[in-house]
Design a protein around this nucleic acid. Structure first.
Lengths: 258, 258
DNA sequence: ACTTTGATGATCGAACGTGATCGTTTTGTA
DNA sequence: TACAAAACGATCACGTTCGATCATCAAAGT
């Protein structure tokens, strides 16, 4: 039985009664537990089912978190682009963290998606993004730190003037960073404000982890943040072009593909 | 029988007659007493039923403004207390500002009400309150600055460890400050976190403006921020007790009554 | 024919849901 | 008021489910 056939059977069973138990799948599908779980994980990441303990069910309609209905700002529009991929990337990135560790998270719609998966890890998170602060606030175990500076509305981040020590005595093993585009020239962002903010973080991180969905490898943007050689790890999805993957591996960049 | 199915049955039964007895559930659901209790606990926490001794009933209608549950935090509850007075006080306080000036605003439900009146004044506002940042964000002319530090959930403020310079090179002619209570002993706050935050601000302000509705003169609270002599101006409403007004005038505190 | 890549299966420890038992609190009744 | 029964919350033990890792296998490319 092939993957495609299993998927079809699972979706059929879920659509039928709204729920299938894990046991039922094990009986109906001639496959090992591990394979069934992988199928379920894949189907959940593409948003077609929702996993619960003991099985899977029809996905709830999206959260009514946005009462106005329309996503107004460019940021809010961008959140929904490639959302399943970003969630999967965020999840994989969160797995790179060790409980209790101190990390830095740069603002961005992809890095935002790793926040839910940090719950329970008791992390210490330094971020310049007010969106990320908001996302982490309900997690009582997570300590949230902010640098000082001016709030930049358009980018929704906090940034201090050049040369000012805006995050005293902070140093972290890992920096999780987003980007507008990634190409042979390096990592790019929309504007120089974001570049300045990210460079500030990079100075204080031992390891730079880049979170980008694969569409970013096919686009280009205005301001260069750093060269590819300054990135230690890239978390992305399977759509990454082969030549980029090869080039990155040659540069010694660790690739995590979800 | 799975959790989801049990929940569905319980909600069905409650919606039917407005009440289900524990015994009825035990008969209808094939589950142990402990599991039923856990289901009820979960459903109550999400606000979908209300437990009573012996069973569960439909939840009392909540505040009309807040359809689903979350008026929970003390802060959000406190916003509506004496709201008209707080708005008037906020408006009067905003009048003390001169366009373009740099000011500091301490977190609190009264100081929050002065934010709308700052629009168009092109102020530079340093605040430690995320609520105030949020309120000022739509005002494109207002520059918002944040100190560095850890986010304290309960108080919704940013505060750095003692001795750390969390707001480099900032100095302001005025500090607008809230309080939990004001009495002969001085200005009081709920906890020492807030006291530390306000003392930090006071060190950098030339003039301290206190925003309190008159009910604060009749209450008391845990931690003392400063003596009355360290306050330069108090903005309050007409309900201020006469003896307090006299005492304050004797101390040279400027009183603004709205 | 050999290596590489991707999918599958097996195993382990950890997390979760469930059921049973305890002592305590509330309710109803004598 | 006093008492007994019911209901409650907390805790522990057990089985299941989960995710991660490693081993195995088949297909594709060299």
């Amino acid at each position: 039985m092939h993957a495609e056939e299993r998927e079809r059977l699972i979706l059929e069973a879920v659509a039928d009664t709204g729920f299938v138990s894990y046991r039922a799948l094990e009986a109906r599908l001639d496959a090992s537990p591990a394979t069934i779980r992988r199928d379920l994980t894949r189907l959940e990441e593409s948003g077609r089912i929702q996993r619960v303990h003991g099985g899977a069910k029809l996905p709830e309609d999206e959260k009514p978190d946005n009462p106005r209905g329309l996503a107004g700002t460019p940021f809010e529009q961008s959140i929904t682009q490639n959302l399943p991929a970003k969630q999967a990337i965020g999840r994989a990135a969160a797995k790179l963290c060790r409980p209790g560790e101190g990390i830095m998270i740069d603002g961005g719609t992809t890095t935002l998606q790793m926040c839910p998966y940090l719950d329970g890890l008791d992390m210490q998170v330094l971020t310049n993004s007010l969106h990320i602060v908001h996302a982490l606030l309900p997690q009582t175990g997570t300590r949230v730190l902010l640098p000082s500076g001016t709030v930049f509305r358009e980018q929704n981040i906090v940034l201090a003037p050049a040369g000012e020590d805006s995050m005293p005595r902070f140093h972290a093993p890992k920096l999780f960073m987003g980007a507008a585009a990634v190409g042979p020239q390096g990592v790019m962002q929309q504007d120089v404000i974001l570049v300045a903010a990210e460079r500030r973080f990079m100075d204080r991180a031992e390891e730079v982890v880049l979170l980008v969905d694969s569409s970013k490898f096919r686009s280009s943007s205005g301001a260069i943040v750093c060269g590819l050689d300054e990135v230690d790890t890239i978390v992305t999805d399977a759509g990454i072009p082969q030549d980029m993957a090869d080039r990155l591996r040659d540069l010694g960049v660790k690739l995590v593909v979800v």
